[in-house]
Design a protein around this nucleic acid. Sequence first.
RNA 1: GCCGAGAUGGCGGAACUGGUAGACGCGUCGGACUUAAAAUCCGAUGGGGUUUAUCCCCCGUGUGGGUUCGACUCCCACUCUCGGCACCA
Length: 809
Amino acid sequence: MKKYIHEDIEKKWQERWHESAIYQLDSKGANNPYFNLMMFPYPSAEGLHVGNMYAFTGSDIWGRYMRMQGYDVFEPIGLDGFGIHSENYAIKIGEHIRDVSKRTEKHFYEQLMMTGNQYDWTRRVETYNPNYYKWTQWLFVQMYRHGLAYRKKATVNWCPSCKTVLSDEQVEGGKCERCKSETTTKDMEQWFWRITDYADRLLKNLEWINWSEEVKIGQKNWIGKSVGINITYKVQDSEETVTCFTSYPETNFGATFVVLAPEYPEVLKITKKNHLNEVNKYIEKAKKKADIERIAEGKKKTGVFTGSYCLNQLTGYKMPIYVTDFVLGHVGTGAVVGVPGHDLRDFQFAKQFDLEVIRVMKTYDGDESVIDKEEKVNHDGIMMNSEFLDDLDHKEAREKIMDYIEKKGWGKKTVNYKLRDWCISRQRYWGPPIPMIHCQKCGWVPVPEKDLPVLLPDIEKFEDVLPDGSGLGPLAKQKDFVETTCPKCKGKAERETDVSDPFVDSCWYFLRYPSTEFDYVPFDKKRTEKWLPVDMYIGGKEHTVLHLLYSRFVTMALNDWGFINFEEPFERFFGHGLLIKEGAKMSKSKGNVINPDEYIQKYGADAVRLYLMFLGDFEQGGDWRDTGMRGMHRFVKKVWSLFKDIGEEGKGVKNMSIVHRTIFGVEKDIKRLSYNTAIAKIMSFVNWYKESAKDFTANERTEALETLCLVMAPFAPHITEELWEKLGNKYSIHQHGWPKYNKDLIKEEEVTIAVQINGKLRDTILVQAGASQREIEKVARESEKVKKYLKQKVKKVIFVKDKIISFVV
RNA sequence: GCCGAGAUGGCGGAACUGGUAGACGCGUCGGACUUAAAAUCCGAUGGGGUUUAUCCCCCGUGUGGGUUCGACUCCCACUCUCGGCACCA
């Protein structure tokens, strides 16, 4: 038998798979469609990251296993190439993104090809391709037509030194990630998608979708539903009112002040004349700070008095109104009623400005002393000083007071969400232009469908694609692009020059995959109904909120508009863990980044795939060690060497039940994506084979080796294909069914029973499986080791079938 | 601060619904093959004690308590690590 040369074998089969098109979506047949999706990568130009390969291998194993279970598995791949990540890289190396991205596309696909995943290479999707982003723009127009896309002034991060808008991710601790200067905020008109309309549904559906609890909780917290009440207070000597949202109104007998956000629209109207100066100054200062900076200041509260008061209807307390930046304009109503005894921030503010603290809840331990330090501020307890609420538990009191306030007409029960509408405008170059036209007469008009796509102009000069600090994107300088005619009145008009957020590109890509050959619709109706929703989606947990939530939102909207017949895009989502190297996070600065190419060249894709899946639990992540990689290479060579004696006759063995136990065990592990233990079972099987094969008949050899190929096929697709052929089987192992095990044979005939005395292991005995307590007790009592301990009277005997017998003395 | 995940030999990690802790692999040590090395193969390998030896005993899953015949697994309190969010009223 030849030596194992992975380069030849892997190349050979990759070409064969390609020619025979066994992984292509069957657009006519396919009785059991199964959409196995992995998160498409954003190509970083430095090439495929081993983290990508880790995720994709785990997903591919699942897809290959499902194919062997008889499903028509569709496993597509594409590139999330539009966006700031790619653009920043191009800027860094001083090259035009258009050129960089052409190069990375080729590089990425070549690398992905080498990993041996069962992709349908005919259905690739690249977000920067006009035939794709045409439909991203179409989605925007749909959003606009259905009232879910709108424009509003928003506060964005701004770096005064780089003169550009920054995304939240680019601001680290209040500083610009590139030049380290302090960032400020700027109010700019932006396009938004009304995801908050779907907040409740996004939350509700979490109850039934098959996702891990961890990810569901992540989404739930992000949506951040809080139930409470909006209470409206009259401002004294004024026509104005202030409405405050609170989720713990039961403490309102202890309310002693009201605080407004600097962004609060009526701040100046509420402020008394002689306080205007100071209030204005404070607001100006606050505006210059980013949210992050406000937070960084920590517990020290600042603020300024407006000179006005409002009345607490419950107590008649005259509450002074302050402006402070710890109240955020976009949260709740932008106004908060201060209860210093039972909210830490309110307490800190009250101390700063010497406001009264009134205790209205004692602790469950009965402490009702004066609240004079932070540690004593309590959020729950039994009501006191609250008239008709006294002695009620605070939760009970909450219901009662809300009804009371509503009945009195002072307020209205409200639900508040942390989730904010999705700002999709980006003042950048490398994205799909937002397909809107502004006309002096007609206002904003969407680009008609027949005129899509609005092509991203191919700007020749590299310098012209850089953000320039005008607050407008690079497209604003392209006259030919900006100047257009209004689709409505045919008059002169201007195009929107912002592009959309890269998350818009990725929020619907899975819908495109099965329909890539259609150029007149984003997704064909029949095709979509057949293949979607996605059956299994595997990807990183870091996308728990943004990407997954946006995709769910868009799917719901498309469902509402009648384009698709389902409202959840991913029937099942599985979040894998993080891959690290020798205890440390991989990073370029540390120089410990693993380049998968090198390892594939050295050890072969099969060995790398196996090792990636073996080094830890797929859900938890794992720690890459080069020595471990070498060990796996050794294992693959060992497997290869087993096939040298095919056809040799031995005297035969009685018991091949381990074959069945292996099938059973590996299957069970794959089903729960516990790939590392599945591989361990395959290794044990190989060890057993090496020890026992000398006695096998030719048939027994074949049975064992075929089984080995089949259970290993999802993990190591090339070598198993080669060995499968060597055994004389027909192409392809990947179209063969998963092996069946015999239920009777997986049962052990003999079992080892642990014998315990007072819970301590004293002996083990080998008995027939299923032996009764009486039989086992008899054998156990005869054991010398046990006898020693059974001199005292046995009080109790505990027996677990096939497991344990325990004597209590 | 809040939410989530985790802590097991020299190392990566196993242990399904409480039932023989350390599967599988790495590393190390010893041996075989070889002029030699690499590669390969065989054996040993949690710590401690005891024994000529087989045996046997004790201690061991981050810390402290609890429940149980029996706890890595369940309960309470705490420490540390990683990931996410962060003044959400």
